[in-house]
């Protein structure tokens, strides 16, 4: 019974992590539930999970609705997913440090684009803060995900 429950929680963890991080949105630390992009990225590209991609796309859409960014994060996610699937030069599942550098590049580039679309210095400072904060949180999250997998 306990094994069944732990197996269920292990399988459900990627989905629950996205839901919880999106749901616990607060200004400054987790605006619009943006922290949900950490498990979305990790379980889509670094450690793919079956049936996670449509779920991730739905939550990107929900982040967009809260952010009022009109399909921006959904578009970026789909674009990265398609680009990653078509190429075979870089295997994201075998990246060093659970792909933290790729995540920084992904989120940094997307944030920069978002700042440029509605340019002002406050937006830039907030983007810098979010890139640093999400990249920092990515490392313990990846370690936790590894432990749960084992």
């Amino acid at each position: 019974m306990i094994k069944k429950i732990s197996d269920f929680l292990r399988t459900a963890f990627p989905f629950l992590a996205v839901l919880v991080l999106w749901h616990l949105s607060v200004p400054f630390w987790n605006p619009g539930g943006i922290l949900a992009l950490i498990p979305i990225f990790y379980y889509s590209f670094i450690n793919p999970v079956p049936w996670f991609v449509p779920y991730a796309a739905v939550f990107c859409f929900l982040i967009d609705y809260k952010f009022d960014t009109l399909l921006f994060w959904t578009f970026i996610y789909c674009m990265f997913y398609a680009a990653n699937g078509f190429q075979n030069f870089v295997d994201l599942t075998r990246q060093k440090n659970e792909g933290v550098m790729v995540f920084m590049a992904y989120f940094g580039a997307a944030s920069l684009l978002l700042v440029l679309l509605g340019w002002n210095f406050i937006g830039l400072f907030r983007a810098i803060w979010l890139v640093l904060w999400l990249s920092t949180l990515y490392i313990p999250f990846a370690a936790l995900a590894q432990r749960i997998k084992k």
Binding site: V26, P27, F28, P31, K66, F67, G118, N120, L130
Partner: peptide
């Protein structure tokens, strides 16, 4: 219920 302040956007529910 939710204050969604991020980048240069500021909406709330």
């Amino acid at each position: 219920t939710y204050n969604n302040e991020a980048f240069s956007h500021s909406t709330f529910f």
